[in-house]
Amino acid sequence: MAPLLVRGGSHRRFITIVRMRNLFGVVVLAGVYSFLMASVLIVYDAVDVAMTEAAVGAGVSTVLFLAALHLTKSMEYPAARPAAIPLIVSGIVGAALIWATYDLPPYGTAVAPIHQHIVPYYIENAVKDTLVPNLVSAILADYRGFDTLGETVVVFTAGIGVMLLLKGRRSTRKSEGRAP
């Protein structure tokens, strides 16, 4: 029952996120949604991911969104554009994806192909190879260390991008008044 309740909570949250026009409220609700998502991830046994989602998704990203709201406006204009085409496109995409998921193995079975490939080796040898009992840490930092290196390269590049974008801010503010 608990997963269903958590699910219901996060679904009500996202419906409000879609409809609301006050962006401050949207950002705060997105933070609440991230916490609920972390609870769902705990139900899925992904404790490390849940911790990261609570810290990064609900913490850091909410702070970043609030900072961006500080630099811009916090009210969204009522939609002037027709909503029919996006609704149809989303509906078709959603229906196609749901249809495709029925080819996936049933939820929670141990005989699914995903559990047969390389993971038995990790479970067998992780402590012997890396001395780390937490399999997620062992794979992240050892077996798939180059993935993590690539990840840090992406984060580094994004950091450089943010710094370059925001560097000239103060000086350009004076020359604001670009002809509309």
Partner: peptide, 22 residues
């Protein structure tokens, strides 16, 4: 439970926040 998706998604969360920041 299978730890491999957890590792991939840990990477995805961090990359996701980087793209959002950009």
């Amino acid at each position: 439970s299978n730890p491999l998706p957890h590792v991939l998604i840990l990477t995805a969360i961090v990359v996701g926040i980087a793209t959002i920041a950009l």
